[in-house]
Computed example of a mutant assay.
Amino acid sequence: MRFPLIDMMRGIHGKINSTVGGQSSQQVAFLRQLQKEMKVEASMTIPLHELNVVVFDIETTGFFPDQGDEMISLGAVRVCGREIHENEVFYSLVRYEKNLSPEIERLTDITSDELKHAPYLSDVLIQFFEFVNGDTLVAHHANHEKSFLQNACWKLFRAPLKHRIIDTSFLYRIAEPKANMVRLEDFCEHNGIPVADRHHALGDAKLTAKLWCCYLSKIDELGCRTLSDIYERVAKL
């Protein structure tokens, strides 16, 4: 699926003059038009082995965007069916003017100095949505990512987040309803996926993508063929 304004934005994105908050009228118009053109419901009936998704992860200063916590990095990788496209990735740090806590610096290996020279969040989000290009989003325990994206879209662009975001928990709740795990690394180890680059947005996105593909195979054996099937199964749990 293509969006007319994306091609236009490729040409003008580098010429946009940021305002104090980083957003511009062109960016706001782009995102609002993108939201209007999305056909979110169409993804519900596409066979999962043909569904294009973008698996993503964010690193943040905390857990509560409405209390001032902010995104500091965003990473993503495209997955077509059960094939991870390792060469189709997105990654960016996000500008943060304050100093990170020592705990966050140790956890993410991101420094305060790096973030002071990083792109504004508005620029990062426009580039990210251009990369997504209308595909379904996937995240591990997606409420965290969803809350920050919703907050940012409304704060920066006065636009709601309309992208569908699928939580990986939907899949393993169907395939392994008795699984008593929460952490991404625990699920990876449980499924024989080597854990690397943990707490790096792109590294975690790649791990989540492998987990997504693994559980797609498991739910396929249980008769789940579309996102609609997944939602129906989860609703009955």
Score class of each variant (00 low, 15 high):
residue 39 K to N: 14
residue 39 K to T: 09
residue 39 K to C: 03
residue 40 V to S: 15
residue 41 E to A: 11
residue 41 E to G: 03
residue 41 E to R: 10
residue 41 E to C: 01
residue 42 A to R: 12
residue 43 S to G: 13
residue 43 S to M: 05
residue 45 T to D: 10
residue 45 T to V: 14
residue 48 L to G: 05
residue 49 H to R: 04
residue 49 H to Q: 06
residue 51 L to N: 07
residue 51 L to V: 11
residue 51 L to R: 10
residue 51 L to W: 05
residue 52 N to S: 14
residue 54 V to L: 03
residue 54 V to P: 08
residue 54 V to S: 09
residue 54 V to Y: 09
residue 54 V to I: 14
residue 55 V to N: 02
residue 57 D to G: 07
residue 57 D to V: 07
residue 59 E to N: 06
residue 62 G to L: 04
residue 64 F to A: 15
residue 67 Q to H: 15
residue 69 D to L: 11
residue 69 D to Y: 11
residue 71 M to P: 06
residue 75 G to Q: 05
residue 76 A to W: 07
residue 77 V to W: 07
residue 77 V to A: 04
residue 79 V to C: 07
residue 79 V to F: 01
residue 79 V to A: 04
residue 85 H to L: 15
residue 86 E to W: 05
residue 86 E to D: 12
residue 86 E to K: 14
residue 87 N to K: 12
residue 87 N to H: 13
residue 88 E to V: 02
residue 88 E to L: 12
residue 88 E to S: 08
residue 90 F to W: 06
residue 92 S to Q: 08
residue 93 L to D: 08
residue 93 L to V: 04
residue 93 L to S: 05
residue 95 R to M: 14
residue 96 Y to L: 09
residue 98 K to F: 01
residue 98 K to M: 12
residue 100 L to C: 03
residue 100 L to E: 06
residue 102 P to C: 09
residue 102 P to G: 02
residue 104 I to T: 14
residue 106 R to N: 10
residue 106 R to E: 13
residue 109 D to L: 12
residue 111 T to M: 04
residue 111 T to C: 04
residue 113 D to A: 15
residue 114 E to P: 02
residue 116 K to V: 03
residue 116 K to G: 08
residue 117 H to D: 06
residue 117 H to T: 14
residue 117 H to M: 14
residue 117 H to R: 15
residue 117 H to V: 14
residue 117 H to E: 15
residue 119 P to R: 11
residue 120 Y to F: 13
residue 121 L to V: 02
residue 126 I to H: 10
residue 131 F to N: 10
residue 132 V to H: 10
residue 133 N to M: 05
residue 135 D to L: 00
